[in-house]
Every structure is written in structure tokens, then in C-alpha cells.
Design a protein around this nucleic acid. Sequence first.
DNA 1: AAAGCGGGGTA
DNA 2: TACCCAGCTTT
Length: 349
Amino acid sequence: MQATTALLHWYDRNFRTLPWRTPPNPELSGAKPNPYHVWLSEIMLQQTTVATVKTYFIKFTDLWPRLENLAEAEEEEVLKAWAGLGYYSRARNLHRCAKIVLRDYNGRFPEEEHKLQQLPGIGPYTAAAISSIAFNQHAAVVDGNVERVISRLRAITDRLPGAKPVIKSHMAALTPHERPGDFAQAVMDLGATVCTPRSPACTICPWVDLCEGRKQGIHESLPRKAPKRVKPTRKGMAFVIAREDGAIALRRRPDKGLLAGMSEPPTSQWSEDMKQDDLGQAPVKADWSLAPSTVKHTFTHFHLELAVWHTQVDAAFPLPEGYWWSVPETLEGEALPTVMRKVLKTPLA
DNA sequence: AAAGCGGGGTA
DNA sequence: TACCCAGCTTT
């Protein structure tokens, strides 16, 4: 197929080196992809940009060079290393997946898409990506970039997510049996660097003459998506208990729900009609002061505003069950999500 | 089928 | 500052 060949040539010329990638065309270079690296990077790249993932990927492979090492780590250590990347269920599923692959598959990932998709944290996209990139299997890889590129190339005007099966069948028809992994990465790279959501660089696109969306002048409006809902704003209070030596009192969040299993300074309930000066919500009796600024943070489905209250206590102060002191030297390495790091960075006066 | 789940990049 | 982007699991 002409479109396929043209894009593979574009990929060979525009290949971007990344820590988890092997050079294009495995049959020519002889370099074999590392399935552990491919899997780890693909999990990290879910909803997350390449630039952000790079440092975390290096940190993880440095801490746990092989899947076996990751499988034998404590979940707490994995959550600490993941802190700041977001969507923390990914870290828990990553760890569960490593244990299952070690136990059930002798530490080697299965090559087939349908077997990969049975593993925790691996859905339709990631199963196809690992199967094609790590094992050279013919799988149709569809992520957000592919949805955009293919819907423009074929002028698919049906709304997402309904149009997904049609996009997948077009991608399957375009995917070659020779270099399926390189082709999948080529379409995703094209979407990331040329066929961008806004102001696509059509003049340098290897598919410009084939692009049905551009011929019809509708490419920039594709893909069409379901309208998004407005995010409500929830309010709450965060409580920073500081000891004389600078240690901060932390606790662990519940194992289910938002920021599951992560650490935090204690907070009140978060709700739209929350009063931010009701110290009855404080975890301990103390002499509380209000910080001059509030912390603002946006999650997937709501905005959050936290009033920050703080108090200074002496070394003998008794903490509630389950709390612990984190001294300044250990604070950085705690499993603190970004919103809680914002709380701890808030000027107190 | 719809809702829940974070963080970073860009205009 | 406001808006945009993106895959898996649970309900």
C-alpha cells in the first residue's frame, strides 16, 4: 500500500530517539526491543506527555532494571517513585501486572494482543502497542494521535467515541505485516509532531496528497468529539502540622477512590458548599493559623480550592493513629501527589 | 454506556 | 488564566 510505504519512509527519516525505543526497522538494525521497557513506557504514556515520562522512565529502570526487580518491590516504593505522574491506579496496576507476568509467564510478557489485555492496566491500546512494538505482531494500534490522523486522512465525521471501531478498521487496513510496530509509532509520531490538534503542518505531511479531510477543508475540525461537561469547584481545608524540627504530619489516603493509597497532610471533606473556617474539621486540637493564599488544583472532573491551616507543635505532641512524622530529608521521597506538594509549599505567613 | 481517575502543555 | 489533551477500570 502506497500510503503505508510513504509513512514508513517518513518515519525512518524523522525517527526520534527516546530512552525506551530501539532504532527503526528491527530487521535491518538487528536491535531487539525490550518488552519490559516497551510496557513500562506505554503505561506511563497513558494520558501523559513524552517530556514528562522521560525522567520517570529513567528513574524506574534505574530503581528496577528488570521486570523481576519491579515485581519484588514493595507497592509503597512504587507509589513513591510514581508520585507526580498522576492517575495513581496505573502504578498499582503496574505492580500487580509485574507480579502476574513473573508468576504466570516466567517473567516474559505474552506476545498476543488478547492475552496482554487480560493483564491489569493493559487495555485495547496498550495491548496492541506492546504486541506490535515489542513483538512485531500485526495489531491495529489506536490512541488519541491515531484517532486524529486517521479521522482526518479518511474524513471520518462521526463523533468519538462512537467512531472508534471505524477508525480501528481503517488503521488495521493500513498496518503492514512487515513493520507493524514501526508503522504504529510512525502514525503516533505524525500526530504528535505534524498532524497536531490545532494548526497542523500539512505542507510537510507525507500524507498531504492522500488526506481526504484536507481535500474537503474539514481536517482541522476532526476528530469530532462528544461535548464536555463543565467542571464544578469543590472547596476544603488542608492542615499542616509542623514539629519544631520541621517534620510534617502525614497520613495515608484510603485504598480506593481519588489519590488512592497516596500520602497527604490531613484534609477536611471536599465539597461545593464547604465552609473553609470550620476548625471542627481539624484532625487535632491545636492553635491553628490560616495561610494567606489558597491552593488551587484541577482534577479530571472538578476544580479544587484548599484553604491551608497550619500549627506548630512540640516534640511530645501525640499524633492520631496512622499518622507519621516526615522530616524534611524524607518529605521529597514521600508518595505525595502534586496537589499535596502544593499545600506543603504554600507560604504560611 | 457512563463515570471516575491527575497532571502538564499551549494560546 | 482558560482551555486542551488522553487510556483503563469500575459501576
